[in-house]
Design a binder for these strands. Structure first.
Length: 532
DNA sequence: CGGCCTAAACAGC
DNA sequence: GCTGTTTAGGCCG
């Protein structure tokens, strides 16, 4: 209650409560309050605060009732659902991503109702709900977070994912009766709860695709992890893909995912490819993310913009069971193919663009991330930051300078932005976004397209360009196909040969990772969350 | 019936 | 123990 104390007396409790409105001491890195439109409504009049009323667990209903009564709130904390709250929390983060613990913290700090429920005792229930919502909704995606060693980052699925749940790709299993599936799932898990009775029916769908990673039930063991990395629970192909990471198409996005996909993704894979393949593609996706075609480009960019560094974040696990961490750059599958095809394409325009900061936003950057730190400190990571994937060239360049960029445009808040996962969907504020987006566009086009991922770029501006590019690069498709076929091979191949090959690559990132680089750093001022 | 909330079992780390 | 995933049940519109 101590905290609550503050809250209690204070205005915090406003009925509508707005989360982020005041992070109290501003501990949190999120200075800007942006309520998504969703919050809307809140209009509730003042009315009592839920404060005392609903304190216990299980009051959900009570809360609702209250809400109804009061007229305004649906839940004890207001009208927003957990999913909405989580979304706000994530959006409020400078980097648009938070770990579970940070989300909890945000709740406690921003939502009056949870203020006094931060401790372990009282928190169990709602935290469980938070976790549940994160897992359940496709609008949230989990990004592996190596750096911290902590839990994964949770981000908003650029695609939107709406609030809808996530159809996790298993259509087959649940079709009939979800129950069966469920049962089965449970049973399969390990300990049969109570009832078992499972599969009498033909729920065998699962059996048919035993290996299908996507299938929920099957996932218990190996492959399934793929999803972990990025798990957009959206529908199988398209959405998933697009959701993944690259943000490219904003506008289209609006229209429909589906539409988008086709364009970018081509039909490729999604439709034709068997599930398995598809998934693999996804993997690739991941790769793409990272890969920026850009080894070269990025380099330059880095120079100009500042550093970009990629976080470590994605590790893809493929069916094979291997886990590849791209973290930083590592390999870029794309490179391989891209080198030939892409490279040239991007080079011309992009490079220039890159070079010239002022004008068109640099495009490739996308994958990289801007380091917040730099801006602030300026020195720290220069060299390592660069990491880049491709490396070699990049390295040399990077190391040299670090202009610290200037990312004026890129990030409004220096503090925060630390690292974004490579392609992640960055949903930034409009202004920033624009710049960033643009960056991505090209790249994504390249990579993404080639791979076929659809990337969801958020930015609108970018779209046009990329598209154009896309068309140009049809050939890449071919490449893609190749990938598809050899995905695994490529990976290994790449990794072994390509990557290893260039010692130059050195994945410096490690240092980075380990370093405090991530956000926390940024938060220098206040990193509360840091863990423990 | 679908959306939400809550609870809980379970798996990994 | 925390994090994640999944299943289940209940309430409400």
């Amino acid at each position: 209650m101590a905290e609550a104390g503050g809250a209690a007396g204070a205005p915090d409790i406003d009925p509508d409560f707005e989360p982020q409105s005041r992070p109290r001491s501003c501990t949190w890195p999120l200075p800007r309050p942006e309520l998504p439109a969703e919050a809307g409504g809140a209009a509730g009049a003042a009315e009592e605060s839920a404060g005392g009323a609903a304190a216990g667990p299980g009051r959900a209903e009570g809360a609702r009732a209250a809400a109804r009564k009061g007229g305004s709130r649906r839940n004890a904390w207001g009208n927003q659902s957990y999913a909405e709250l989580i979304s706000q929390a994530i959006e409020s983060a400078p980097e648009k991503r938070l770990t579970l613990a940070q989300i909890y913290e945000w709740m406690v700090r921003s939502v009056p109702y949870f203020k006094d429920k931060g401790d372990s005792n009282s928190s169990a229930g709602w935290k469980n709900s938070i976790r549940h919502n994160l897992s359940l909704h496709s609008k949230f995606i989990k990004v592996h977070n190596e750096a911290t060693g902590k839990s994964s980052w949770w981000m908003l699925n650029p695609e939107g994912g709406k609030s809808g749940k996530a159809p996790r790709r298993r259509a087959a299993s649940m079709d009939n009766s979800s129950k069966l599936a469920k049962v089965r799932g449970k049973a399969s898990r390990k300990k049969p709860p109570l009832q078992s009775a499972p599969e009498s029916t033909a729920d065998s769908p699962g059996s048919q695709f035993p290996k299908w990673p996507g299938s929920p039930s099957s996932r218990s063991n190996e492959d399934s992890d793929m999803w972990n990395t990025f798990r957009p629970r959206t529908s199988s192909n398209a959405s998933t893909i697009s959701a993944r990471l690259s943000p490219i198409l904003t506008e289209q996005d609006d229209l429909h995912d589906e539409e988008l996909l086709p364009s970018l993704v081509y039909s490729s894979a999604s439709s034709n490819v068997p599930p398995t393949v598809t998934e693999e593609l996804e993997l690739i996706d991941g790769l793409n993310l990272m890969s920026p075609s850009s080894s070269v480009l990025s380099t330059q960019q880095s120079a100009s913009s500042g550093q970009i560094q990629r976080d470590s974040s994605f590790s893809l696990r493929n069916a094979a069971g291997q886990t590849t961490t791209f973290g930083n750059s590592l390999f870029n599958p794309v490179d391989i193919s891209l080198q030939s095809s892409v490279s040239h394409f991007s080079a011309p325009q992009t490079l220039e663009a890159l070079l010239t900061p002022s004008s068109p936003p640099p495009r490739d950057v996308m994958m990289t991330q801007v380091d917040p730190v730099l801006p602030q400190t300026g020195n720290r990571m220069s060299s390592r930051t660069l990491l880049l994937l491709g490396g070699q060239a990049a390295q040399s360049k990077m190391s040299s300078g670090n202009p610290r960029g200037k990312p004026t445009e890129q990030q409004a808040e220096p503090v925060s932005a630390s690292v974004l996962p490579s392609t992640l969907p960055i949903v930034t504020s409009p202004q920033n976004t624009a710049s960033i987006t643009s960056l991505k566009a090209p790249l994504s086009a390249t990579t993404a397209q080639s791979v076929q991922l659809g990337s969801p770029l958020l930015l609108s501006s970018a779209s046009p360009a990329p598209l154009g590019l896309n068309q140009d690069r049809l050939p890449i498709d071919l490449d893609i196909d190749m990938y598809m076929e050899n995905l695994e091979c490529d990976m290994d191949y790449i990794i072994n040969s390509e990557l290893m090959d260039g010692e130059g690559l050195d994945f410096n990132f490690e240092p980075i990772l380990s370093t405090p680089s991530y956000p926390s750093t940024s938060q220098a001022s206040n990193h509360t969350w840091v863990p423990s």
